[in-house]
Amino acid sequence: MSLSSRMILVLTTVGLISGGFLAGVAKLTKERIALNIQAEIEEAIKIVVDDAEVSTVLYEEEDLVIYREMEDDGQLAGYAIQATGVGFQDKITLMFGLDETLTKITGLTIIDQKETPGLGAKITEWVAFLQFWEDRDATGLLTLRKPPVRTPPELLATEINSITAATISSRKVLKIVNLSLEKVRGLIAEGKITSEEHDDH
């Protein structure tokens, strides 16, 4: 057999065996990986929307998913917004909750981030950042308040605290939320999402 034929034969055989093997591994792990991603999203929803039990995807586009959350007894618990945007180092994926009337933020949690450890990564900490996201006004633009802010009552309903030494990461999270809220308001105006308040009319 010529050298060229041998080279082609060896590489093709190794490639085929490897491909077949990987296809088998992908088949075995695919379902479990999908369940892990789903569990991560469900956990985030439960953090930001109280009593959320049944999720329905209302709207989905790249970097934005809107879920309607129902309680066990069929009552509307609120809405969860999963959004992805640019952070300081890499993309930030977060989830925030809206109340039944889509006018108030009920909480925020970070699903994925690669901000600077010890500085920007503080966006994942409850005391430093997340506690300030409860009960924020979702009807207009939210703004950043410079430190020091120690407790949430020190802020206006339209304000978010800025983490000391991590202003950029705080601002990036705020921008992702503001853009998502703008999109949500647009969808309400277009009638693609209806809040409970709107349903009553």
Binding site: L22, V25, A26, T29, R32, I33, N36
Partner: peptide, 9 residues
């Protein structure tokens, strides 16, 4: 790839 899939799963 196997190690990566295993860790993800």
């Amino acid at each position: 790839t196997i190690a990566d899939q295993f860790l993800k799963a």
